[in-house]
Design a protein around this nucleic acid. Structure first.
Lengths: 200, 200
DNA sequence: ACCTGAACACCGTTCAAGT
DNA sequence: ACCTGAACACCGTTCAAGT
């Protein structure tokens, strides 16, 4: 015992994150604990605190990976060759699909709250911003006579909307059953909003 | 000790809920614990379990009260005498205002997750349904040639949208500062969606 | 230098025992 | 009959001590 040096810090970190992600995927946010992660990788709890600041830090690292996965899923090959409206609907539906297929991972991103006084690190906020930027860009071709500020506001309203439908659906608060109806709701929100936005 | 009979079950319940609400308002969801509630009302933890099934049950009771408060706030006096569009915007803004003024109480309603296998009791689900019904009714005058099903779907999309903006704003994920901009986002979402919905 | 093991201050929940 | 107090199985976090 003590001084094993079986693994480097980096290896330890990777093992811990992988083990933690497995727990989250299987048991959800509530099922995660430092002790479980430590047990999974064959170290003591104390060791985790050599690699992560605390449990919030560990969760943040996982959430960052989740945001990366989500971003990858939302990156479409033919973004430029299709109608902007269809593209935005596709973005929304990719988002819903991701949340539906990996609900625990997705939920942790939004269920995890930092202590009131702490705020998300810049590198993390950037990952969130990147997603909003996708929507903003998708909206750009429809801007018409709208100012850049209008487009920004619209992208936030729109994405907030998609997110809300997603949340309510996954928590069964929308009284809609199945992914298909959620996808329809999303499409309804986006298309109607865009009609209003473009003024067609 | 033992056999105090200082308070009836009903009194105990009321005291516990009031104490618990105070803790939630001040310290948020995470700050709540059965032991703290018990200490506040001068009883042992065990006593709480004579009045509530478990801590989830206690939280559900608080959340039910919160939904009642919210419903009261959203009930407007002149609902029938104003433009339906304005009315829906007012509903949305009342929702945002409530969340902004009482963030901890509001957040607990949406942060609290039941165990995967358990579902919300019918009496609780009805309180949620009641709020969606308000939106649905507000939307009714704008239905035009839309089917009843379309109106239902639209009310869900719209309310999901408002909710999403509210969540992202309160978790600082929208990059918007202050209630005013959130209110603007909400109005943008609702008015543009309605333009699309009514086809004007 | 690296990791452990035990400690500390917390949880939710249960239930024999006291009055 | 009513409530306690202690127990059980968990938490996150810290850090002296062992190799």
């Amino acid at each position: 015992m003590a001084r094993r040096s079986d693994h480097s810090r980096e290896e330890l970190r990777e093992m811990a994150l992988t083990a933690a992600e497995k727990i989250v995927v299987e048991q959800g946010y509530e099922g995660l604990s430092a002790r479980k992660v430590a047990a999974q990788i064959g170290y003591t709890v104390g060791t985790l605190y050599l690699v992560f600041e605390n449990i919030d830090d560990l969760i943040l690292q996982i959430n960052a990976r989740t945001l990366d996965r989500l971003h990858a899923r939302m990156t479409q090959p033919h973004a430029n060759s299709i109608d902007p409206r269809d593209y935005l609907v596709q973005l929304g539906q990719a988002y819903i699909r991701f949340a539906d297929e990996d609900p625990h991972r997705w939920a942790m991103v939004f269920e995890h709250r930092l202590a009131e006084d702490r705020s998300l690190p810049a590198w993390y906020q950037e990952k969130v911003a990147r997603m909003f930027a996708m929507v903003e860009q998708g909206l750009q071709p429809l801007a018409g006579r709208h100012s850049q500020d209008d487009v920004l506001q619209a992208s936030r309203a729109l994405w907030g909307g998609v997110h809300g439908i997603c949340i309510l659906a996954l928590s069964d608060n929308l009284g809609v059953a199945g992914v298909d109806s959620v996808q329809q709701l999303t499409e309804s929100l986006i298309r109607n909003y865009l009609k209003g936005f473009t003024g067609d």
